[in-house]
Design a protein around this nucleic acid. Structure first.
Lengths: 140, 140
DNA sequence: CTACAACTTAAAGTTAACTTTAAGTCAAGC
DNA sequence: GCTTGACTTAAAGTTAACTTTAAGTTGTAG
């Protein structure tokens, strides 16, 4: 397949495909003249990459996980760790969502005077939520 | 207060405080010689900024919301919209977490052969989850 | 009086994940 | 034989939210 066909089928732009190749995430099967030729397998690989991204892996991590093998064997422990990380993120986001909803509905004259809003502010300020802001690993 | 005291009390570094001032997020009450002097109120403001960040607002959005007022009146509609966005993110992340957990436990010889894993891959590839990856607004 | 720590500024550097640009290659159709 | 469109490369640009650096200024302690 030509790069444009891979792009069309996968929804990943040609420039991104070249970028991914450069990073070792995918590889072309050869060249026809100067043009890359891809195996259809690259589509599956791209799905795995999308999956990894969606789960919060960085491209570097994904490259490490997928390796160079044709049939990537995914590290189950790593998956569980990521699942746990996601779980933590979900919990924090849920607290945030509830806080925001309350703040929106709250009748206190100013949010600054609403005890619940203040508690939320405290959460944010004391860094309970910081992991959510700056988390590299689940940096979606 | 001097900048270092604000930094210590708030946990926000001095360079970040200057950066925030430049961006119009906070302001110093004046100068003593060349040095900035801050009102203690800036600490509250910094908490609000942290809260906004934690909720997924960009600094620009936060500047817009907080404005220049002493007592910022927060737009309730905006809060609700953000809460809804967060809710969407939470749902997607929950799907991802469950998928990852299953993948980790799954006994199929290769994840590529596990139907549930494949469904997850499809989700990721078809962009259902893309909003989570590239969402600027909830870009935590 | 002088050294020093803590501040100041403006500008450049950082990171990830791409995108854009400029300049060039190549097969195919007219 | 020439134009066209799809490809190629290497390098630079983009974005957000900072951090770092270099060079200069101060109040204060010794």
């Amino acid at each position: 397949m030509e790069i444009s066909q891979v792009a069309k089928k996968s929804g990943v732009s040609a420039s991104t495909l070249r970028f991914y190749e450069e990073k070792g995430l995918i590889s072309s099967i050869g060249r026809q003249g100067i043009r890359r030729v891809f195996s259809p397998n690259v589509l599956e690989r791209l799905e795995l990459i999308a999956l990894g991204r969606a789960a919060g892996f960085s491209l570097e991590e994904i490259a490490g996980i997928l390796g160079n093998e044709a049939k990537p064997e995914i590290d189950r422990e790593l998956l569980l760790r990521k699942a746990n990380e996601l779980d933590g993120t979900i919990k924090k986001l849920t607290a945030m969502r509830d806080g925001l909803q309350h703040a929106a509905a709250c009748t206190a004259p100013s949010h600054l005077e609403c005890p619940r809003f203040r508690r939320l502010m405290n959460l944010a300020a004391t860094g309970v939520i910081n992991g959510v802001i700056n988390s590299k690993s689940t940096n979606l």
